[in-house]
Write a protein that binds this DNA or RNA. Structure first.
Length: 283
DNA sequence: ATGGGGGCCTGCCGGC
DNA sequence: TGCCGGCAGGCCCCCA
């Protein structure tokens, strides 16, 4: 799925179309995505104004003037495409409807936001704004990696005694929210830590190097508009280009990018997911 | 509590 | 060209 940088890129792209705008009509074309939509979702959205568009982990949150917040998760293949807006001299036409256009927001400013999700691993729900962070999907998320809540002492405590591989630990949204398979691979490469290394066996120094590396990797990826693999697109349909900066992800059998290393990137399966790493410099 | 595996869906790609 | 298996960025749930 889109990981944190992709979701943040989408959130930023939605801002000009939706911020402070009323949803004139919410078109809901099926009863569910991964789970059933909340009762009367179309009616509850129609006529509501978007007061704030924010993000928690990989969730996009739209606070409405109805005291409700729309929670959106893109799953693996979810896209939110904005059309009908002017970007410089360029006008983004409304596209013809496509397969898997499950929800379409018709906005007051004549833009349209189309949620398309082929695999339907995505989700949408409505919750009272006042308690949205206690929603089941958000309640047990760990700290935002780009916030001050993630620091050395937090991470050390979170990893302490964990028998699981560090790769699996960093993917655990309860420990840190927002990392996915790609960025965990990239983070461990930069930190020169093997994905198979047990979390509890990291040295204090290694834990200390992880925190700034996590931030840097995510910030660089956001700066690049995310990574475009398979299904992910920005709100204008553009490709992100961070994938050109991958050091290990999807680089099996290619040479390690650490100067003087000479290793060959390997791929292993860990709890059903591919890990890419350099066996020579990641220990 | 922790860790591992299956399942949810569709699309795409490589191999035969 | 066509079919089939394997794989995909996430997350929940069940089991040991």
């Amino acid at each position: 799925m889109p990981e944190l940088p992709e979701v943040e890129t989408v959130r930023r792209g939605l801002q000009p179309a939706m911020q402070d705008q009323k949803i004139i009509c919410a078109e809901v074309n099926r009863p569910d995505l991964r789970w059933p939509f909340p009762p009367n979702m179309a009616q509850r959205l129609t006529g509501a104004r978007v007061l704030r568009l924010w993000r928690r982990s990989k969730y996009i949150l739209l606070d409405l003037d109805t005291q409700e917040t729309l929670i959106v998760h893109l799953g693996m293949s979810g896209r939110m495409l904005v059309s009908g807006q002017q970007i410089g001299e360029f006008y983004q036409e409304h596209p013809a409807p496509e397969k898997h256009d499950h929800v379409v927001f018709h906005m007051e400013n004549d833009t349209r936001v189309t949620f398309n999700d082929a695999r339907r691993f995505g989700a949408m729900d409505l919750a009272p704004t006042a308690v949205v962070e206690t929603h089941k999907m958000l309640a047990s998320l760990g700290p935002e990696p780009l916030s001050n809540h993630l620091d050395d002492s937090y991470l050390a405590a979170a990893l302490e005694g964990r028998n699981t591989p560090i790769k699996t630990a960093l993917l655990d949204q309860r420990l840190i929210a927002g990392l996915g398979n790609i960025y965990v691979c990239e983070v461990l490469f930069r930190a020169k830590i093997s994905p198979m290394r047990k979390a509890k066996n990291l040295s204090k120094m290694q834990v200390g190097t992880l925190v700034p590396i996590i931030r840097t990797v995510l910030e660089e990826a956001i700066e690049a508009g995310g990574s475009s693999l398979k299904d992910y697109r920005q709100t204008g349909g553009e490709l992100g280009y961070f994938q050109h900066s991958f050091h290990v992800y999807d680089r099996e059998s290619q040479s390690c990018k650490h100067v003087g290393c000479g290793g060959i990137i390997a791929r292993v399966s860990q709890s059903g997911r591919s890990s890419f790493y350099c066996p020579t410099c990641q220990r």
